[in-house]
């Protein structure tokens, strides 16, 4: 930066490429740059305000029940579908000989709550007649997807912890942890 000490043409050092634009008067360039900086700071201020405004609209706390809940001791469930948490959490706990999974009781068609018909071994949706097996697979009606399974964990205390914020319905994936807890009957 020896040009810094050069008193003859100090502005040309500030201009990015003086050789390419010899016609541009140096003083006007810096003023233009300066003006540009002034406006861009204003633009940045507005952009920042808008971004903060958008962030402001995302609440940091919500007054909804937690998506996670403790479904009680695993030992307390019999084989088959349990409707114990249907009213409170909209979830069926299903126990198979090898372990547990939790079905979210929301029809994948348009969001109604299906009913469990134990005698027929299927879930039936009252809205448009979708039928599901105990695994959650569609066997009748318009539903496009199997029922969602929620994340389920076995806590060291022996309690089942269900987390409805993590869901899976693809066969092959849904049978693996964390959507399934191995627990020999």
């Amino acid at each position: 930066m020896e040009t810094m000490s050069e008193p003859i043409n100090p502005v040309s050092a500030a201009a990015p490429a003086p050789a390419l634009k010899p016609a541009a008067p140096a003083a006007a360039m810096t003023r233009g740059d300066f003006l540009w900086a002034g406006w861009s700071m204003l633009a940045a201020f507005f952009a920042a305000s808008a971004a903060a405004g958008a962030r402001f609209l995302f609440p940091n706390v919500i007054y909804e029940p937690s998506q996670k809940f403790n479904a009680g001791p695993a030992a307390g469930y019999d084989l088959g579908v349990s409707t114990k948490w249907l009213n409170e959490q909209r979830v069926w706990i299903v126990r198979t000989p090898s372990g547990f999974y939790a079905l979210w009781a929301r029809c994948t068609h348009l969001g109604c709550t299906p009913n469990w018909w134990g005698d027929q071994n299927r879930f039936k949706c009252p809205c448009h007649g979708s039928n599901y097996t105990m695994e959650g697979d569609v066997i009748a009606g318009p539903a496009p997807k199997p029922l969602w399974r929620a994340k389920v964990d076995l806590a060291p205390t022996g309690d089942l912890i269900v987390d409805k914020s993590q869901l899976e319905c693809i066969p092959g994936k849904r049978e693996l942890p964390p959507y399934f807890v191995a627990h020999a009957a």
Partner: peptide, 13 residues
């Protein structure tokens, strides 16, 4: 209180 403690920029606004 929520504005004060839990909302982004809530206290500031």
């Amino acid at each position: 209180k929520d504005l004060e403690f839990a909302v982004t920029l809530g206290q500031f606004l």
